[in-house]
């Protein structure tokens, strides 16, 4: 790791101020991606502004069916929230399978979505749930937030402080883990609203990061059932190929994970 300067923020305002004062700085939350990246000398922020202990960025609140998750809330806390489990078990389940127990104790939802790793789990949930990403200065719809591989709509120095979404009638997530890294080689999050709207987001498979799959959405809108996907085709041309899985296999996984996500959602 290159030399860096560590600052601990006490509030959102403090964090933004510290970040503005820094040169090539970065916010540090759980650090579960950033610190390994810095260890490999693939990132070299001059300053780190630690937001893990900012009180107003922590915790889960529920009002009616509106869920708000502070950006510094750990995966463990999301996974073990009974309120959340009652409203949207799919996101609890998703959080409970991110990384491993130690990673879940440190890693946060805000860190995950701000990083927008193409194999991360949360971006698919945010996109499928039509979540709103709240920052220190504005609110961004998930559909506008994730813009490419490790790319988001965040401006320089902008800090994700929370996410909110309306709990859907049904949601399900299924991940096919990379055998080595255990990141999503393909993960599919499906959501069905009371009004019949369906959104399906795919992570781990797209060569440009998380994306919605219109064909699957259309099929599931017509019939909310795993069988509805029998005749859907997934085009491999925009999917990733690597030493673990080629695009053809990933295309198959998108369909299979989508089917299983619907089955899981129906079972809840």
């Amino acid at each position: 790791m290159y030399e860096t300067h560590y600052h601990r923020a006490s509030s959102i305002q403090d964090a933004v101020k510290l970040r503005q004062a820094a040169g090539e700085g970065k916010y540090l939350s759980g650090g579960m991606t950033l610190i390994p990246t810095m260890k490999q000398r693939l990132a070299a922020p001059s300053d780190l502004v630690d937001v893990r202990q900012v009180p107003e960025m922590k915790g889960i609140s529920v009002s009616g069916r509106t869920v708000r998750i502070g950006a510094a809330t750990t995966h463990f806390d999301v996974a073990s929230s009974s309120e959340l489990a009652a409203l949207c078990p799919a996101i609890s389940g998703l959080a409970s399978h991110i990384g491993d127990p130690h990673v879940r104790h440190m890693g946060t939802i805000g860190g995950s979505i701000a990083n927008n790793d193409p194999a991360a789990d949360y971006p698919s949930a945010m996109l499928a749930l039509d979540a709103t990403i709240i920052t220190d200065r504005r609110e961004i719809a998930a559909g506008d937030f994730f813009t490419g591989l490790f790319e988001t709509a965040l401006e320089d120095g902008e800090l994700v402080t929370a996410v909110t979404f309306e709990a859907p009638a049904k949601a399900g997530y299924q991940k096919f883990a990379n055998p080595a890294s255990r990141y999503a080689m393909t993960g599919v999050f499906v959501v069905r609203r009371d009004n019949g709207d369906v959104r399906v987001a795919v992570t781990g498979a797209g060569s440009n990061g998380v994306f919605r799959h219109e064909g699957i959405e259309a099929a599931l809108s017509a019939q909310w059932s795993p069988d509805a996907l029998a005749n859907v085709t997934v085009d491999p041309s925009d999917l990733l190929s690597d030493i673990h899985a080629d695009a053809t296999y990933r295309a198959n996984l998108v369909k299979v994970m989508a089917k299983r996500a619907v089955a899981a959602a129906r079972a809840d």
């Binding site: 390994p36 260890k39 780190l48 104790h105």
Partner: peptide, 29 residues
């Protein structure tokens, strides 16, 4: 390891298991 996967570095921080190879000493202050 270098990539936060092997777990030989696990300690407890404030009662919870964490990977001390992926945590700065400063974060643990």
């Amino acid at each position: 390891c270098d990539t936060s996967q092997c777990g030989t570095c696990v300690v407890h921080m404030d009662g919870k298991s964490v990977k001390s190879c992926s945590t700065l000493a400063a974060q643990a202050a």
